[in-house]
């Protein structure tokens, strides 16, 4: 009977972030590597957070106490990964920068070559079979060029978001296949699997938005963006606690609204940032 519920939860919880992964991240091999890096660092932060949680047995069920530490650890790992990313990538030209440079070179060449005689053109063809040093450099630059910062940070966020969704929710969702259903005290009529699917959807998307905003903040040293991410993270975490006893509507609706607002804010900061610019043709 509740294979239905299983597939419902699967679509609601996972489809947006998996679609983002398939349609955005998978188009570039470097983005895939970055997303795997993002998920690895998020798992490391969870490992540290769970060790912290485990070594203090009396506070294990006091989530208000555990949340601040685990969020701090997650954000610290986000910064660590940013430093690693910056160390490897910051001084490299981006793909679009390399491409525009290449186009500029080609333009100059074609202007020059139009004046040249036929013999010279033949020589040119010969030399193109044995490319000169400048060409080699351009190709290497193209191969090792980094994807742009916005997509990189989104891919890292996507990696951690997918890992989050599978680790936190995938294992629970597996149990929704059986005939039984789970209801919480806060929501005696709505299945906890459904609520969790919606929360997994919101929070996995928030992982992308947070990562884009935070990386933007780190890179451009606008630390109010980082502060926004941390505060938003805390807010979301404490809102989920409403699900335990008080009100699941309050938690789900407010988390949904915050998610939409955060994504909107993310786009706004992007447009104001140095990593995106209007095309001028």
């Amino acid at each position: 009977m509740t294979q239905l519920l299983f597939y419902g939860c699967l679509f609601v919880g996972f489809s947006p972030i998996l679609a983002f992964y398939a349609m955005v991240v998978c188009r570039n091999s470097q983005l895939i590597i970055l997303s795997i890096g993002g998920s690895f660092f998020w798992l490391l932060s969870m490992l540290v957070a769970s060790i912290w949680w485990y070594i203090i047995p009396p506070m294990r069920t006091s989530f208000w106490f555990i949340i601040p530490f685990s969020i701090a650890i997650q954000e610290a790992f986000r910064y660590l990964f940013y430093r690693l990313y910056a160390w490897g990538f910051n001084n490299r030209p981006s793909l679009s920068q390399v491409q525009s440079q290449l186009q500029k070179q080609l333009k100059e060449k074609s202007i020059n070559s139009s004046d040249q005689s036929e013999t010279e053109l033949q020589q040119q063809q010969q030399s193109s079979q044995q490319p000169n040093h400048q060409d080699i450099n351009t190709r290497l630059e193209t191969l090792s060029a980094r994807p742009n910062h916005t997509l990189s940070s989104a891919a890292i966020g996507c990696g951690s978001g997918i890992t989050y969704a599978f680790v936190m929710y995938g294992t629970i969702m597996w149990d929704s296949q059986g005939p039984g259903n789970l209801f919480s005290a806060a929501c005696p009529t709505v299945s906890l699997f459904m609520i969790s699917a919606i929360l997994a959807l919101c929070i996995s998307l928030l992982h992308i938005a947070w990562n884009v905003i935070a990386f933007q903040g780190f890179r451009s040293k606008k630390y109010y963006l980082v502060a926004f991410v941390i505060i938003c993270h805390y807010l979301i975490s404490y809102l989920t606690l409403l699900n335990i006893k008080k009100s699941c509507e309050g938690s789900v609706v407010s988390i949904g609204i915050i998610t939409i607002l955060t994504i909107a804010f993310c786009f706004r900061t992007l447009l104001n940032s140095d990593s995106i610019s209007k095309k001028v043709d």
């Binding site: 294990r60 936190m168 629970i172 335990i244």
Partner: peptide, 16 residues
Amino acid sequence: MITFKISLLLLLFSFS
């Protein structure tokens, strides 16, 4: 987060 809580529980399982 409720899901966060559950992940902690899951990690507890692997530990315990």
